[in-house]
């Protein structure tokens, strides 16, 4: 999986565009990257998941950790462009309630 930070520097919210497999081989590196962004100042974060077709429980775990870190700062995780299978994985894992979907 690759990702690109596209957040405009003048706002406290991060935005990251992801593509590829959000899985056990990639999610830990991504978590470390995004958690650093939150520690360094993001109070909200949007993930553009339009380029992700494969999501597994490590990816879901990454989403949970980011949600927890943002919640601790009073912020929230937003997700855009969820494809069908990743959405089903999130639904099966019962974590759709903690993320905000935007268009």
């Amino acid at each position: 999986m690759e990702w690109k930070c596209v957040s405009p520097g003048d706002r406290p919210d991060g935005e990251i565009v992801l593509s590829g497999d959000f899985d056990l081989y990639n999610a830990p590196r991504f978590s470390a990257y995004a958690l650093r962004g939150i520690a360094d100042g993001w109070t909200g974060l949007t993930l553009d998941m339009g380029g992700v077709e494969y999501l597994d429980s490590t990816g879901v775990g990454s989403i949970i950790r980011l949600s927890q870190a943002l919640r601790a700062k009073g912020g929230r995780l937003r997700v855009r462009g969820l494809n069908d299978t990743p959405r089903r994985v999130l639904k099966l894992s019962n974590i759709l309630p903690i993320i905000e979907e935007i268009r």
Partner: peptide, 19 residues
């Protein structure tokens, strides 16, 4: 949201059994 067992680490999302 995530289960943490005695040996859970960064590659363990702690949610696969839920799904």
């Amino acid at each position: 949201a995530s289960y943490r067992g005695p040996r859970s680490d960064d590659s363990d999302g702690g949610n696969s059994l839920i799904a």
